[in-house]
Design a protein around this nucleic acid. Sequence first.
DNA 1: ATTAGCACTTGAAGTGCGAGAGTGCTAACA
DNA 2: TGTTAGCACTCTCGCACTTCAAGTGCTAAT
Lengths: 346, 346
Amino acid sequence: MKLSARKEKILANVVEHYIPTGEPVGSKALSEKLGYSSATIRNEMSELCELGLLEKNHASSGRIPTSAGYRYYIDNLMSTSPLGDMECAKLEAMLRAGAKTPEKILENAGGILARLTGCATVVTTPADAQAKISKVELIPASSKTAILVLLTSSGILKNCVCRIDIDINENVKDRFKEIVDKYFLKAKVAELSEEMLEEIIGALENEDYAIKPLLSALYELGKEAGESKAYVEGESNLLAHRDAYGDITELMQFLQQREQLSRLVSFQETPQNSRMSILIGSENYFAEMEQSSVILSRYAFGNNAMGTIGVIGPTRIDYAKLIPDVEYLTDMVGRLLSEHYSEDEE
Amino acid sequence: MKLSARKEKILANVVEHYIPTGEPVGSKALSEKLGYSSATIRNEMSELCELGLLEKNHASSGRIPTSAGYRYYIDNLMSTSPLGDMECAKLEAMLRAGAKTPEKILENAGGILARLTGCATVVTTPADAQAKISKVELIPASSKTAILVLLTSSGILKNCVCRIDIDINENVKDRFKEIVDKYFLKAKVAELSEEMLEEIIGALENEDYAIKPLLSALYELGKEAGESKAYVEGESNLLAHRDAYGDITELMQFLQQREQLSRLVSFQETPQNSRMSILIGSENYFAEMEQSSVILSRYAFGNNAMGTIGVIGPTRIDYAKLIPDVEYLTDMVGRLLSEHYSEDEE
DNA sequence: ATTAGCACTTGAAGTGCGAGAGTGCTAACA
DNA sequence: TGTTAGCACTCTCGCACTTCAAGTGCTAAT
């Protein structure tokens, strides 16, 4: 669908007026700005309504953009400008300030983005379903407690504490190492399965049966390394945009369900071509997100591991400003994480 | 302060009527219920107002309890009944379901309590400032990355990934172990200080200087083990109680600041006698919490480590129901964590 | 000490009305 | 044929006004 130049001008003006003010825009205001009479504008707007790009709140009020309207605007009309050097430097400094561990980098990034944009942000932990288990360590912490550490080929590291009911002596360690070498090492995390775990446990000899908890825990760690987990930050920022929502309670409740969020984010990953993904209002799969837009971008580090960072706000968020913000922050996060994990460069 | 039996009856009835309905209660309703004439009730209520236990929203509407009113009610008039066996069993099952790691136990408990109470919950990680560092492990993960593990005498375990710019060979390990043994092992985490860290780093010989990041990271881990961190769950539940708040935005924003929350919770720890702590409305130190109440309880496990679990809701929450809920859940969490960590029993 | 009665206060809810913004449609115009 | 002017119509919003119910404080009687 290609609009006439004049329709595009009108659409762009409606969007750009509506986003900051939240007020429906009428024909008169545009007529002054664009030099056509209000009647002409009205005719054009009426057609834009029929095309599904604009809509009215009630029979007689100004027009506001529909999801499709925003979509057309973003894809064809909007121009974004990259962040200024000053701002980049400031963000980088903030991001580096608390960057002691990968978890903190992500948490920090979410918080910074939330403050920067005044919206809620979602951050997912890095994961790579294609990664292979490259290292497993078992460290006795006390006589019957051990720490299990797992490292994948893409640089993802997971660990947990595990309790078993026997002494962790050399024998146990050896037996564990044997099983790990045979079944877990070099295995793709995506290919770990309940069945496989049960098979391994089933094959345990009697005296080795006590190490079952270790194997279960290891399996869990592997699974975790393959699946990214979503965290939300700055939800309360959305309360400031309450006027853009009918009832904001639904949305807030939705944002507290991590599994749902993971799905929300993973849905975006289908378009393989671009790193950015924008879903506007009704484009979102979830009914609770109908009045919201999501701007997502992927970060990557190490060998193929990646996660997502994004903002969630009302459909009338300032796309032109937020898109570069999100983009820059994901870049930085990827870079910081690489610095943390990489072995060879730097 | 001791009230007459009749005043107590009136106060109790006001509180018990106001909590579920949220409506100010007038003299007429009480007169029917208590058998005194409305005028008598009015006189008594007027005195309760002067005592600061009741107040009016506006010159001519029913009375509602003040913070002091709730306080008197809770301390002297309220009776709580323990949870039923059925409910206990259900909660225990839910809690055990996802209880694979200590972190998950806590997260899970927060979520369960939030759903159970319809309020926000706050959970702090276990910490013990008096604990000593009992074990430190350094595990090379790749040529220049290592995992650092720290265990305290009270059973708290912390770990992180650390990157240094030299190969982690036997030499480095030995040197690190030497320093750990000398300065960190058996040290109280509360006594770790920046100065001490700088002193240690200052004393490094040239060739050892590269292990500085390891020492910094270790210091951070020790600090973390001594300080508990607060997490909130179920904030969106508070939106359902919006009518109990003027503007809920302030509160929501407050709940997102982890440092503030830690303070909110640590303030409660002063009364050493009891495990439970209830702060009502203006009893809270923070202005943002003026319209909220907090019910906190401590869990403990292992050797002296403890944390807090609690609910946050409007001042007119159902104390009689929530107090046993919180109590039971903290007990369970303590027990579950003990099962995870304990070495000797079970 | 308790109660009945009465005047008064206050907020909530409903009504009516006019202003303002904006639309759709028709007819005139270049 | 595309554009514009004009007009009747619609809808929201704020304001003033009324009414109603609930509840109070106070005084006087019991």
